[in-house]
Design a protein around this nucleic acid. Sequence first.
DNA 1: CCAGAATGTGAATGCGCGTTCTCAATGCGT
DNA 2: ACGCATTGAGAACGCGCATTCACATTCTGG
Lengths: 201, 201
Amino acid sequence: MSRPRGFVEADVLERAMQYFWTNGYEATSMSALTGHLGLHPGSLYRTFTDKHTLFLRALEHYRDTHTRQLAPTLLAGGPVLPRIRKVLIDYLDAAADESVPRGCIAVNTVGERLPRDEAAGRIVQEILALVEDGFRQGLEAAARHGEIPADTDVATEATMLMTLLQGLQVVVKAERDPRRLTRMIDAALTRLAEPVRHVDA
Amino acid sequence: MSRPRGFVEADVLERAMQYFWTNGYEATSMSALTGHLGLHPGSLYRTFTDKHTLFLRALEHYRDTHTRQLAPTLLAGGPVLPRIRKVLIDYLDAAADESVPRGCIAVNTVGERLPRDEAAGRIVQEILALVEDGFRQGLEAAARHGEIPADTDVATEATMLMTLLQGLQVVVKAERDPRRLTRMIDAALTRLAEPVRHVDA
DNA sequence: CCAGAATGTGAATGCGCGTTCTCAATGCGT
DNA sequence: ACGCATTGAGAACGCGCATTCACATTCTGG
């Protein structure tokens, strides 16, 4: 062995993720990053190879710390629909409360790096799959507990919620009054809870 | 007067828009752009001031040539819901047919430039408002013609369709099999057409 | 306590970017 | 036919970027 590190890799990854999240990939310069991280170029490059590799690892860090939480959160017990609502509403509140709405690093990455950056594309794909699967598990539980009709096509509805969430993260960044979207979220979830019936002819 | 231009400004704007659409803002170098446009730096800068101004004008060009078509398209006569479906499906087919799905330049801009680029943010806001308003007009017509229940909250449903469309353009860029999403689109539109009734207790 | 491997430090490097400059070519107004 | 403002052309510039280097420092294993 030899001299030990003066930093914790996971901490650096967390801070790098936050910075990329706020500023995007191209607009993030390595000098700005070293300043924000409190690391010198030498340490950074010896640990993370280069800028792009660091970015990918930051994206994976997001997947592991943020996205993986979704399913456990929804299945934590009690009614699921209010939890789904909370997930969606929290994004709006975050965008409305912060002076600078920064959306979601995965969605931002899709806009900035895809389809050119295939490695990033694979990670984003995993993130979207985790979101969709989290919603699917939540809806399955909701169907079991009678929150939504038992014959609901949960796979399709999970796809819809996932897509709607991504759309929300796009719209929120450009929307003057994010809370305006609350009404839409409630409409979507209300319809999920109410069985659809054809009018009797 | 004096020597006339060897190019048409609108044509250059169209080509610039296509290039930004495919490659994004930062990853588009001015030298690559001059090559693609067949213009020399001098002409480009004399006509469009600088890269950022050219980008903003390309975005406005998208708004005027693409987004403004939505409402007229939906209101062209005949059933509206199939037209809305076609708009959504066309995005999936475009992503599936092209070897390189490039999404939508507005959504890409949100991911890459917002909230930092306020001028771009304003244009994107206009684009989203045009989409939402186009859907609203379409749903109003659909309600008049009995395609959807007369008491439908068209404003809220328009917001939902707009948000869903933005989500679609995100997901499509990362999705291996875009046509998988067709089922979800059909579910969303089917529910729009069918009146929601509480089950009689 | 010493050898040595990895670290912190920050200056240095090369390259590509956005932008500007110079200059010859062009065609409309008179 | 001619003047001249504007264009086409492409070399040149300065700057900031990602990355690397050299070197002193630090701590662990034996």
